[in-house]
């Protein structure tokens, strides 16, 4: 009705108006309370404003993020039934681990043409492509886990293998021989098992109980390929 009163001529002003024209005809009966709690959004906004990170120094911000990443590292090294890794996922830890691993797997040879070792880009691609494949597979199997949560867990669980790589590099400084190889084999196998156990502890709950084996198999394959690359690495 409001629209009808104004419409002849005055169209420019009327254009946003008729959106609510229909509402003017809806009558609200008296016994339905229209008021609601409006203090809750205000309060949460104030709290948000208080915890704003705009005023704090850059050091604080970086330290807080590093602390969060470090806490998740601890969760991987000592896997408990906890949802921290799943709840506040981030991709900083996986990025750090992946870059570290790729840098350590890079050979020091100057002539990269004849270099037989894995290249930086290759390790990078294997880690991310593999993680994405596993995630898609678990989604297809009916897992109730979000894409980035799964990426986060798989990325953080490379940590034992990165440690294994560090140990291997140190062991390789010593004299090569069968004992040297046995030590590396032992370290890699232990860390490989650790990675599998940690990622399974976090991911298995998101799968239907009868399909855990199907979801864990690609994870096993993924860490196996990475362990294999670490075991066969030689500096020259």
């Amino acid at each position: 009705m409001a629209e009808a009163a104004e419409s002849p001529g005055d169209r420019g002003r009327a254009s946003p108006r008729p959106l609510f024209a229909g509402l003017s005809d809806i009558s609200i009966s008296q016994d339905i309370p229209v008021e609601g709690e409006i203090t809750i959004p205000m309060r949460s906004r104030i709290r948000e404003f208080d915890s704003s990170t705009l005023n704090e120094s850059v050091q604080n911000t970086i330290m807080r993020d590093l602390k969060a990443v470090g806490k998740k590292f601890m969760h991987v090294l000592y896997p408990r039934k906890s949802n921290t890794l799943l709840r506040d996922w981030d991709l900083w830890g996986p990025l750090i681990l992946c870059v570290t691993l790729a840098l350590m797997l890079q050979r020091g040879s100057a002539d990269s043409e004849k270099d037989g070792g894995p290249q930086f880009a290759e390790v990078f691609v294997i880690v991310w492509f593999g993680a994405v494949t596993i995630t898609l597979n678990s989604k297809l199997l009916g897992g109730n886990i979000s894409f980035f949560q799964s990426l986060c867990v798989l990325g953080y669980c490379i940590l034992p293998l990165t440690v294994a790589m560090l140990v291997c590099r140190l062991v390789l400084l010593a004299e090569p021989g069968p004992v040297n190889f046995m030590v590396r084999l032992f370290v890699v196998i232990v860390m490989f098992a650790w990675s599998i156990a940690a990622s399974t502890a976090f991911l298995a709950d998101s799968q239907p109980p009868n399909r855990k084996a199907l979801a864990v198999y690609p994870v096993f394959l993924f860490y196996f390929v990475i362990s294999w690359m670490i075991l066969t690495f030689t500096p020259q």
Partner: peptide, 26 residues
């Protein structure tokens, strides 16, 4: 908005004639 903004001639005309029927149209 564009529909109502551009065509008040029609809507308004109709409503003027129909009177009480406007609520239904809205």
């Amino acid at each position: 908005g564009s529909r109502n903004g551009a065509g008040p001639e029609w809507g308004g005309f109709e409503e003027n004639i129909q009177g009480g029927g406007s609520a239904v149209i809205d």
